[in-house]
Simulated scan of single mutants.
Amino acid sequence: MADVAKHAGVSKSTVSQYLNQRYDYMGEKTKKRIELAIKELDYRPNIIARGLKQKSTMTIGVIVANILHVFSTQVIRAIEDFCNESNYHIIVCNADDDPVKEKRYIEMLRAKQVDGIIAFPTGGNIELYKGLLKDKYPVVFMDRVLSEVQIPTVLLDNEKASLLAVDHLVKNGYEKIGMITPPLSPYVTPRLERTNGYKKGLQKHNIPLNPNYLVNGEIPDIQAKMDQMLTQTDPPEALIALNDLVLFEILKYTKEQQIKIPEDLALIGIDEVSFASFYSPALTTIAQPAFEMGKKAAELLLERIKNKQTDTTSKIYRFEATLIKRESC
Rank of each mutant, 00 (worst) to 15 (best):
87 N>C: 09
87 N>F: 14
87 N>G: 03
90 I>E: 02
91 I>A: 04
91 I>N: 01
92 V>T: 09
92 V>S: 02
93 C>H: 06
93 C>N: 05
95 A>W: 01
96 D>P: 00
97 D>P: 04
99 P>E: 10
99 P>H: 03
99 P>Y: 09
100 V>H: 13
101 K>W: 03
101 K>Q: 11
102 E>G: 05
103 K>Q: 15
103 K>A: 13
103 K>C: 09
104 R>I: 12
104 R>L: 14
105 Y>R: 03
106 I>Q: 00
108 M>D: 08
109 L>Q: 05
109 L>P: 00
110 R>Q: 15
111 A>R: 15
113 Q>K: 15
114 V>E: 02
114 V>Q: 03
115 D>K: 00
117 I>L: 09
118 I>G: 00
119 A>P: 02
120 F>I: 10
122 T>N: 07
122 T>I: 04
122 T>C: 06
122 T>H: 05
125 N>K: 06
127 E>H: 13
129 Y>G: 01
130 K>F: 10
132 L>G: 06
132 L>M: 12
136 K>F: 08
136 K>P: 02
137 Y>Q: 06
140 V>R: 00
140 V>H: 00
141 F>A: 00
142 M>S: 07
143 D>Y: 00
143 D>G: 00
144 R>Y: 02
145 V>M: 11
145 V>Y: 05
145 V>L: 13
145 V>Q: 09
146 L>S: 02
146 L>G: 00
146 L>C: 03
148 E>N: 03
150 Q>Y: 12
150 Q>E: 15
152 P>R: 03
153 T>L: 02
154 V>A: 01
156 L>F: 03
156 L>M: 12
156 L>N: 05
157 D>R: 15
157 D>F: 08
158 N>D: 14
158 N>P: 06
159 E>D: 08
160 K>Y: 15
161 A>N: 04
161 A>R: 04
162 S>T: 11
164 L>R: 08
166 V>F: 03
166 V>S: 07
167 D>T: 06
167 D>Y: 11
169 L>I: 08
170 V>N: 08
171 K>I: 07
172 N>Y: 13
173 G>T: 07
174 Y>S: 06
178 G>Q: 05
179 M>G: 10
180 I>G: 05
180 I>H: 06
180 I>K: 05
181 T>I: 11
182 P>E: 15
185 S>A: 12
187 Y>E: 08
187 Y>S: 13
188 V>A: 10
192 L>G: 12
193 E>F: 11
193 E>T: 09
194 R>K: 12
194 R>A: 04
196 N>F: 10
197 G>A: 03
197 G>H: 04
198 Y>S: 04
198 Y>Q: 05
199 K>H: 12
199 K>L: 14
202 L>I: 08
202 L>S: 03
202 L>M: 14
203 Q>F: 11
208 P>G: 10
211 P>W: 08
212 N>I: 01
213 Y>N: 06
213 Y>E: 02
213 Y>T: 02
214 L>M: 15
218 E>F: 14
221 D>T: 09
222 I>H: 07
223 Q>Y: 07
224 A>H: 13
224 A>I: 12
225 K>N: 14
226 M>D: 02
